[in-house]
Write a protein that binds this DNA or RNA. Structure first.
Length: 207
DNA sequence: CATCGGATCTTCT
DNA sequence: GAAGATCCGATGG
């Protein structure tokens, strides 16, 4: 299995997103190894994408996205979950692809133990936070180089997904730029996460 | 099966 | 001070 190179990722996220479908992300830890075949991703651009964490410029949190391609951008959401992105574009230009869902290829037992609440194996990585936790990823993995053979988290080529098997549509749960079809997935994969429209939640009733 | 609210805390305004 | 690239269990049809 050939590891993905930085050069192959140093392009527009929209293009990279499609190339990532069918690829495999692997994590190695003292607990063991887990591999996931990617079946659902979303592109996030830099300055011109209102849904991107980089839309309003560089901050401490999004700094990794401004760095070289091939590194992992990990962020914390809703006070309890981690989500992971593959950084794209050239050094200095922000852009990334959110990894939303995949199928477990290696380390099924370990994956199950990291997601005890999930009943069916096919759903173990059907969602960005599920995918991250199945791989054992937390904030300490922010910035790791996925193209380095020595990294704990690495990205490999798999069987390429034919163009006609790739579908696309709006991104899940984003309130900004809801009309852009920047989510891509492998048609027919049972691991693809359900679509959920973005937008504000009801105003919370205050005490 | 669809919908809803709660959990929980970091980040930027 | 509020919203957020989510998940899960409960509830109702």
């Amino acid at each position: 299995m050939r590891q993905v190179t930085q050069q192959e990722l140093a392009h527009d996220p929209l293009w990279v997103a499609r190339k990532l479908l069918g690829c495999e992300i692997r994590s190695t830890s003292p607990e063991g190894e887990v591999g996931v075949r990617l079946v659902e991703v979303e592109a996030y651009r830099g300055g011109d994408d209102p849904a991107s964490h980089c839309y309003r410029g560089r901050t401490e949190r999004n700094a990794v996205m401004f760095g070289p391609a091939g590194h992992l951008y990990v962020y914390f959401v809703y006070g309890m979950h981690f989500c992971i992105n593959v950084v794209c574009m050239t050094d200095g230009v922000p852009g990334a692809v959110l990894l939303r869902a995949g199928e477990i290829t290696t380390g099924l037992e370990l994956a199950r133990s990291r997601r005890p609440a999930v009943r069916k194996d096919v759903q173990l990585a059907s969602g960005p936070a599920r995918l991250a936790s199945v791989l054992g990823i937390t904030r300490e993995h922010n910035g790791v180089d996925l193209t380095d053979p020595a990294s704990p988290i690495r990205l490999y080529h798999g069987v390429p997904v034919p163009e006609e098997e790739i579908r696309s549509g709006p991104r899940v749960g984003v309130a900004a730029a809801m009309d852009l079809p920047w989510r891509s997935w492998v048609d027919g994969s049972p691991a693809v996460s359900p679509y959920r429209r973005g937008g504000r939640r009801r105003p919370r009733t205050r005490v």
